[in-house]
């Protein structure tokens, strides 16, 4: 009986009209567009949840230190990259009538081996994110390091991408090749595909 009965998605109250057999519920609910969005800021400190439309106001009111730059092609200058410990650099880039959150994170996944992870996430749905591509470029002293990918949606977040190294990854010695006066410039280009 359980296999034939169809159950409503747990986000029915938020507007999801889909009903499904029990064994398909979990997978659907994980990617359901009516699932509340969590705060896209890295680090698990902010517990905010809400609708997609409420994310930008939340960032503006609760995370005032995050600055926004207009343009499809910008340079994200992360300062003091030699700061010890787990550190994040976050900014927003607005173009094509969307906001993209750029995150550079320094972490010690393996003890004694600090690495930098850089990724871009769209303040939008997964479907909207699939319509874009982003390009991160480190360049300097005759060297160039480029990563191109599809931005994640804030619905998925970037924690998983960072955990799976599915982003720009480089360690501190590589960072030093491109850094100047302890600052690292990342050229970020967003394009429609």
């Amino acid at each position: 009986v359980a296999q034939t009965v169809r159950f409503p998605c747990k986000y029915a109250s938020s507007g999801c009209e889909i009903t499904l057999p029990h064994q398909e519920k979990a997978a659907h609910e994980e990617s359901c567009e009516f699932r509340p969005y969590s705060c896209p800021c890295p680090g698990a400190s902010c517990k905010w949840q809400g609708s997609l439309a409420a994310i930008l106001p939340h960032l503006m009111h609760q995370h005032k230190s995050i600055t926004t730059l207009q343009g499809e092609d910008i340079v994200f200058l992360a300062t003091a990259i030699d700061l010890p410990g787990a550190v994040d650099w976050v900014m927003m880039q607005s173009c094509f009538d969307f906001h993209f959150m750029l995150v550079l994170e320094k972490q010690e996944k393996y003890s004694g081996h600090q690495q930098f992870f850089a990724a871009v996430q769209l303040i939008g749905t997964r479907k909207q994110a699939d319509g874009f591509a982003y390009r991160l470029e480190l360049s300097g002293h005759g060297r160039r390091l480029i990563w191109e990918a599809t931005p994640r949606s804030v619905h998925e977040g970037i924690a998983m991408a960072i955990m799976n190294n599915d982003c720009l990854v480089f360690d501190t010695s590589v960072a030093q090749l491109f850094a100047e006066n302890g600052n690292l410039g990342i050229n970020v280009t967003i394009s429609k595909c």
Partner: peptide, 24 residues
Amino acid sequence: RTHRMPKEIRVEPHKFAAELIHRL
């Protein structure tokens, strides 16, 4: 076509994790 220099923004390090400790 002159190559327009992309706009640059200085981003300070942010210890989000520390933000929680700060709030406790």
